[in-house]
Design a protein around this nucleic acid. Structure first.
Length: 510
RNA sequence: GGCCCGUUCGUCUAGGGGUUAGGACGUGAGAUUUUCAUUCUCAAAACAGGGGUUCGAUUCCCCUACGGGCUACCA
């Protein structure tokens, strides 16, 4: 293999629905590797299974990659020198290679119908189309040449299968796992070309990776068992010298129980599995995504990168550029990792803190807009953000944490004030309202000392008068320092909220 | 069942023949914050088991167990 050849990696998803966490991570690792080596990133859509094609899925995939900041250099959308980038549009290319394999004795025509094979599988528990039984089945190896020719000429439906050799050891050097070996006798005669003329993944992946000059392949561990088929195909097609290097990534597992993480686990456990919202065009079912759940793409990508990789230090927070610089395949772990949503949220919290206020403001503004709050002053929004930034885990928390800055409280936590309310407090707040109407300067620190002085003068306790003031401005027992809130709300709004709340607390009209 | 891959705190992981086996998330306790969150401090918490190799194995090898993946004219 040419060690100096240009790095070209591809991400080859199937457009069958939303993009799963694991898929994004595969794309990410490939992207990091390619960028680090000044290589190209290719998106190829594997849509050879027309029965599973879902409209909109391809656009969704492109959008996901873009959101994550790992958009490809070549894709169905951007084009490129190696197009087309949809397998369905490359359909014509595959048949010739399959025929060539037949001609060279590495593959054969098979006329067994799917129903016949299903019947065999039903009777023989471990049925496998292989060197052991292929002569008992209906194919060009068992049939007389004239018979095969006749069936072909008459247009009988048929597939082309690889003729797996017996007694060979097939091995390759995986970038993550080292040498992996298989016994060829144990691998079945996989279908290469389907009856509808479309290639299966096995044929298409080899032909496309070859034609697109792919140098390195990152894919999930679930592909390991079919690696021997691909290996042989590279060899049989005469391209062994151009075969890419493979990295089979460990799987992302369910947080509880066992097995691969699936969309269902997210629904069941209440966290997203898809990168962005996905609405199934048929059922109309909406599956929540990380983006809409309030994740920053930086956090999502950071979290994904650390799921199965680390740089050997204690650092956990990495920007995409840092990841590109530090990434290395030999630090990818071999074992599957259980997805931990709590940790994912931690990454997001950290990223919200390290994101500049003006960038966060864009998200905050759209959250406000979603709740009907528009025409917000940008300086005011920035001030609010600076006050509540540390309290956000998800971007959408902004509404819960800061809506009172934009709307007066409609409900008060009366339980927190009423049981201890008395005439003395009513008098205190009536007096305070009067004093505040003329208080100057309207700054947090000044307000605080003034307010505390008044409490002392009243003879009441600090705690008895702090909480009610907060409830008046906020509505509940939460939020930043209460005098910061008052300062930001401004004199008019603060006083007006105090009046409104006092009415609610006492039943009197002011 | 067969084949392949894997196995360090609950989770993500670092480490690597001699270490108090480190960090992070989460959890618990305390401090701070006269709200809540934050922050800070501390704590509990792991080398699957058995054989080798070795002066010495968590680290290297083998076996077992366990986990996972694949076993379609799906990718």
């Amino acid at each position: 293999m040419d060690q100096d050849r240009k790095v070209r990696v591809r991400f080859a998803p199937s457009p069958t629905g939303g993009l799963h966490l694991g898929g994004v991570r595969t794309a990410l690792f490939g992207y990091l590797f390619a960028r680090q080596h000044q290589g190209a990133v290719v998106l190829r859509i594997e849509d050879t299974d027309q029965a599973r094609f879902v409209p909109g899925a391809e656009e969704y995939i492109q959008e996901c990659l873009k959101w994550c900041g790992i958009a490809p250099d070549e894709s169905p959308l951007h084009g490129g020198e190696y197009g087309p980038y949809r397998q369905s549009e490359r359909k014509e290319r595959y048949r010739a290679y399959a025929e060539q394999l037949v001609a060279d004795g590495y593959a054969y025509y098979a006329f067994d119908t799917a129903a016949e094979l299903d019947a065999l599988r039903a009777t023989q528990p471990n049925f496998k189309y292989s060197h052991e039984n292929r002569l008992q089945l209906r194919n060009s190896l068992s049939l007389a040449p004239e018979e095969t020719a006749r069936l072909l000429a008459e247009g009988h439906p048929h597939v082309i299968r690889i003729k797996m050799p017996a007694g060979e050891t097939i091995s390759f050097n995986d970038m993550i796992r080292g040498v992996v070996s298989f016994e060829s006798s144990l691998v079945d005669d996989k279908v290469l070309l389907k009856a509808d003329g479309m290639p299966t993944y096995h044929l298409a992946v080899v032909v496309d990776d070859y034609q697109m000059a792919i140098s390195h392949v990152f894919r999930g561990e679930e592909w390991l068992p079919s690696a021997p088929v691909h290996l042989l195909l590279w060899e049989y097609l005469g391209w062994r010298q151009d075969m890419p290097q493979w990295a089979h990534l460990p799987l992302i597992l369910k947080p509880d129980g066992h097995g691969k993480l699936s969309k269902r686990d997210g629904d069941r456990l209440g966290f997203p599995v898809y990168a962005m919202n996905w609405q199934d065009p048929k059922s109309g079912d909406l599956t929540k995504g990380f983006r809409e759940m309030g994740f920053l793409p930086e956090a999502f990508v950071n979290m994904l990168a650390l799921l199965g990789w680390n740089d050997g230090t204690d650092q956990e927070l990495f920007s995409l550029d840092e990841l590109i610089a530090r990434f290395s395949v030999d630090r990818i772990s071999k074992a599957g990792a259980k997805f931990d949503f709590e940790k994912a949220k931690w990454f997001n919290q950290e990223w919200i803190r390290r994101t500049a206020t003006h960038e966060l403001a864009v998200h905050a503004a759209s959250i406000l807009a979603a709740h009907g709050v528009t025409d917000t002053d940008e300086h005011y929004l920035a001030d609010v953000l600076d006050l509540v930034k540390d309290r956000l885990t998800l971007l959408v928390d902004f509404w819960d944490q800061a809506s009172f800055f934009f709307r007066r409280p409609e409900h008060y936590d009366l339980q927190a004030v009423l049981p201890k309310w008395n005439e003395e407090k009513t008098a205190f707040f009536l007096d305070m309202i009067n004093k505040l109407e003329n208080f100057d300067p309207w700054h947090s620190a000044e307000l605080e000392s003034f307010y505390k002085l008044a409490i002392n003068a009243s003879g009441m306790k600090m705690g008895e008068l702090m909480l009610p003031f907060r409830i008046m401005l906020v509505g509940g027992k939460f939020g930043p320092h209460v005098f910061d809130i008052a300062a930001l709300l401004g004199r008019e709004e603060t006083v007006s909220r105090m009046k409104q709340a006092l009415t609610a607390f006492t039943g009197a009209t002011l």
